[in-house]
């Protein structure tokens, strides 16, 4: 169940941003991605999640083992909290949203429409979606945006529970989540103009 990334190069908008990224993520581990804005954290996460093809290198993971969560939560404003979660549970073929609701303290809001949630509550619902996917590897892009301290605590607890069940997580974040984590600074892998990372625009220059 481990995720192995080898010599990965990825591009954003046709321009290589990262090259020769190598890391392995074993069950029960958290890897935190650090780096300034525009360093390529989101691009790396999207490549790992399989949303974009790598320029070079490989991402080895069990098929359909990665759950991705980004800035947008994928919530429908006219559906209730429970309906939103049930939909994703259905799509991912799992059942039971109660544990996810409890973990992110959403029980009181189950029948509230998503359009009437605050930004932090929406975020909690978006993170609760991770629990209903039943996937072992989480790829998270700034999961704690707009969360207050208590909610960050809830997320940290959910993350610990996920790790205890043999899950792992790849997280781009700047704050301390209260779990033991290795740190990967993506600036080390910044694509250099000379190497080009196998990008095609090389052939033009």
């Amino acid at each position: 169940m481990s995720l192995v990334v080898e010599n990965l190069s990825c591009a954003r908008g046709g321009i290589p941003v990262l090259e020769r990224v190598c890391f392995a993520l074993n069950p029960g581990e958290v890897l935190v991605l650090r780096g300034p804005n525009g360093a390529g954290k989101t691009t790396l996460l999207r490549t790992v999640a399989g949303l974009q093809p790598p320029l070079a290198g490989t991402v080895e993971a069990e098929p359909e083992s990665v759950a991705y969560a980004a800035h947008a939560d994928g919530l429908k404003a006219t559906l209730t909290v429970a309906e939103n979660l049930e939909f994703w549970a259905g799509i991912f073929g799992t059942s039971g949203i109660d544990a996810a609701l409890t973990a992110f303290d959403l029980e009181a809001l189950v029948d509230r429409h998503a359009q009437n949630l605050s930004a932090g509550q929406k975020r909690r619902l978006g993170l609760a979606r991770l629990l209903v996917t039943g996937r072992p590897v989480w790829a998270l892009d700034e999961p704690t945006v707009s969360l207050d301290v208590a909610s960050v605590g809830l997320f940290g607890a959910a993350l610990k529970g996920h790790l205890a069940q043999g899950g792992s997580a790849l997280i781009a974040t700047h704050i301390d989540l209260g779990v033991e984590a290795r740190v990967l600074d993506v600036t080390e892998f910044r694509a250099t103009p000379e190497a080009g990372g196998g990008a095609f625009d090389e052939a033009f220059a």
């Binding site: 321009i15 694509a191 250099t192 103009p193 625009d201 090389e202 033009f204 220059a205």
Partner: peptide, 14 residues
């Protein structure tokens, strides 16, 4: 035009 674009990008990347 693509070559120009590539050169600009390269300069921006440093």
């Amino acid at each position: 035009a693509r070559r120009l674009h590539a050169i600009r990008m390269r300069q921006r990347m440093g």
